[in-house]
Design a protein around this nucleic acid. Structure first.
Lengths: 101, 101
DNA sequence: TCGTTATTTAGCTAATACGCTAAATAGCTA
DNA sequence: TAGCTATTTAGCGTATTAGCTAAATAACGA
């Protein structure tokens, strides 16, 4: 929980997650979308990974990062349910079904 | 957006929002639930307020803070929709309706 | 093996965040 | 006015964060 919200506190890291929504990307591909150095991006990846928000698969030389959406859902939606009045908090599943329409 | 996620990055501030879910509380009442000094809590309130997540109403001497749920919803659910694949992003209203079942 | 590419680690600086105590402010009541 | 309560502001120390460049590591192709 804590590590997830810490990770989400930086705009670059939130944007990285958005870039990954349609599938995996390499560290280099991701880094090219941001105006900071690659070592800096590497640090951002490390934080996202520590929070469990992304997974890194090493494919000889390059590393492919993928989004771990379930961790994000659980932390964020869990918190949102805790902040809203009781009515919904009892059924953890309905949020996701609800969004999917 | 940025200020909202910054505000959410500290566990005390998230918990303050939870405390306010059923109605307003004074700064002092809120502070009593946390193991840090009142000036420190005052700083947390200031950050939540700057992000628009709480509103402070001055009632002669004491200040009553209330949750501004719509700001939280807009920032957090907006982000969640951006991170999930396209299908849902088009209809901003359905998230809230979906949760309420 | 050598060079090239991809990524991370090390080491640094500057800025921000968080906690504290002491003091200031504002309103209330005697 | 004086004193009391509630809250914030000021000022300080320390820890963390975010950026950088330079160097290390790892895998690949010639």
């Amino acid at each position: 929980m804590n590590t997830v919200f810490d990770a989400l506190s930086h705009p670059i890291r939130r944007e990285v997650l958005e870039h990954l929504k349609r599938g995996g990307m390499t560290a280099g591909e991701l880094a090219d979308h941001f105006p900071v150095s690659k070592p800096t991006m590497s640090g951002h990846f490390a934080k996202l990974k520590a929070a469990g928000l992304i997974l890194g698969e090493n494919r000889g030389g390059t590393i492919v990062y993928t989004l771990n959406l379930s961790v994000l859902e659980e932390a964020v939606m869990g918190f949102m349910n805790r902040v809203r009045v009781g009515r919904d908090a009892a059924d953890p599943g309905n949020v996701h079904r609800g969004e999917a329409r």
